[in-house]
């Protein structure tokens, strides 16, 4: 359940932005969950709701949109472009869990489907990011 640590980071970053931009109310936060990290959309939304501080007026009526972004890869060795379901691996549950915890471990446990190289670029859908923060 390390999603909680990431959810805390999202809220801290959103409140930092509110502080910097002088926003008294955050109306919407859009979060992208990269497919590579395999974080459940419902789980992350639930965790965020649970840790949303009740005493924080700037988050009193914030709409949270969570969008899953498909993972896309480009092999640096053979230029093959592939998606998560085409990648070779992970070979077992522990490998998948390691990628869930640290997405860069894809380079230890996934391979290009065309040439088996671990030298690929994650062009999108890596992990958790904030795509938009709206407020007034």
């Amino acid at each position: 359940m390390h999603e909680l640590a990431l959810a805390e980071a999202v809220l801290d970053a959103a409140l930092e932005t509110a502080e910097l931009e002088g926003l008294s109310l955050l109306t919407r936060i859009e979060i992208r969950l990269g497919e590579l990290q395999q974080i459940g959309k419902e789980t992350f939304g639930f965790v965020l709701g649970e840790i949303m501080p009740a005493a924080e007026p700037r988050l009193a009526s914030t709409r949270i949109d969570v969008v899953v972004e498909p993972a896309r890869f480009r092999c640096r060795r053979c230029e093959e472009r592939f998606c998560m379901s085409q990648a070779v691996g992970p070979e077992n549950v522990d490998a998948a869990e390691a990628i869930h915890l640290i997405p860069e471990l894809a380079h230890a446990f996934l391979r290009c489907p065309a040439c088996c190289s671990p030298d690929f670029e994650v062009t999108q859908g890596r992990g958790v990011s904030i795509h938009a923060i709206e407020g007034e």
Partner: peptide, 27 residues
Amino acid sequence: MAHFVGERPVPLRGEDVSNALVELLAV
């Protein structure tokens, strides 16, 4: 990192090193 990969090699380029390091510190 050995906790996650055991004896497997972890071939990381610069940006991946940075991302992995930031993720590890953040969680």
